[in-house]
């Protein structure tokens, strides 16, 4: 017992916090990557997360394609669809004020959500946990569903993989160089517009991956991303915009903090992340790991 709270409830909420944190981390990672290179706040990130979940659901419902192939296919579908949108429309806005990118993706999010609501209504569709991950482990002090453990593990792998891609590969070095000085990178003969399209597709694909991972945990519904995205914005502000490591670490930490708040003061659990954001802004306006702009 800690402060009169049973240890099971405490650890249970902590686990939920960790799972939420995993999604915050994956989503804010994608946002940070897109923002870093394109300087676009991708408001459609929540909609792309929802598209990932729906892609998994539809692959299963129409083609009978199961969870594991969908884990690859859904992010690809979302990434490709988003890359097409970037090429056709978003790329026209880069030399304008950055606010237009935000407004455009906001409109895009509304259109995507409206379309899914038109066809599938607002209620959630269930998506079964894959049989290999059904059941759970009894850890003695608490029960850990296998799938939830897998979500935490998978998100750690995804974040690590993306970090390696950006920090250790040639492609990643192009990305980082183009973030610093796109004109110069272009002069070296690297196709920067293509790189931008790829980056947007990558970020959106990460959102799609988070979506398919979330499908068995939460219900697949057209509005599943719309409230999440604002929390993720707050996470990105706390971590420091454009800081990839900051986004990931803050994602996990704030997820855990939210879980803890649910234990000790449930009424504040919805707002604790925003309160942290306000405090961080007062003390370090650039965010925990951001550079002073």
């Amino acid at each position: 017992m800690i402060f009169d709270i049973p240890i099971q409830a405490f650890l249970g909420q902590l686990l939920i916090g960790l799972i939420n944190g995993s999604f915050y981390a994956m989503l804010s990672l994608g946002l940070a990557i897109i923002f870093g290179l394109l300087r676009v706040i991708n408001f459609a990130h929540g909609a792309q997360y929802m598209m990932g979940a729906f892609a998994g659901y539809l692959l299963l419902a129409t083609f009978g394609i199961g969870y594991w192939p969908a884990l690859i296919l859904a992010p690809l579908i979302v990434g490709l669809a988003s890359a097409v949108i970037e090429r056709l429309m978003l790329s026209r806005l880069y030399n304008l004020d950055h606010l237009y990118g935000l407004l455009f993706t906001f409109g895009l999010a509304l259109v995507i959500e409206g379309t899914f609501r038109y066809y599938y209504g607002s209620s959630g569709q269930p998506y079964a946990v894959p049989s290999a991950l059904a059941g759970g482990y009894n850890l003695g002090f608490m029960f850990l569903p296998k799938y939830r453990g897998w979500v935490v593990l998978a998100s750690l792998l995804v974040c690590l993989g993306t970090w390696l891609l950006i920090e250790k590969t040639k492609l990643g070095s192009y990305l980082r160089a183009a973030t610093e000085n796109p004109t110069l990178v272009r002069a070296f003969g690297i196709n920067v517009p293509l790189l931008l399209t790829f980056t947007y597709g990558l970020g959106a694909g990460l959102a799609g991956l988070a979506g398919i991972l979330a499908a068995p945990v939460y219900q697949v519904s057209p509005l599943m991303g719309s409230n999440l995205i604002i929390v993720v914005f707050a996470v990105v502000v706390v971590g420091g915009m454009g800081s990839i490591l900051g986004a990931v670490i803050t994602g996990y930490l704030l997820g855990l903090l939210e879980g803890l708040t649910k234990v000790f003061y449930p009424e504040a659990s919805n707002i604790v992340i925003f309160v942290v954001m306000a405090i961080v802004l007062l003390i370090r306006p650039a965010g925990l790991m951001g550079k002073e702009a």
Binding site: D97, H98, L99, L102, V237, F274, A278, L281, A293
Partner: peptide
């Protein structure tokens, strides 16, 4: 006061997040 501590797109996100916080306050 909080939003103007940053400029441009950053302050936009701050207003969004703080307004969402107020939304949850109104919910409860």
């Amino acid at each position: 006061f909080l939003a103007i501590r940053r400029t441009g797109i950053y302050s936009t996100m701050i207003t969004l997040a703080l307004a969402q916080m107020f939304f949850f306050f109104c919910l409860q």
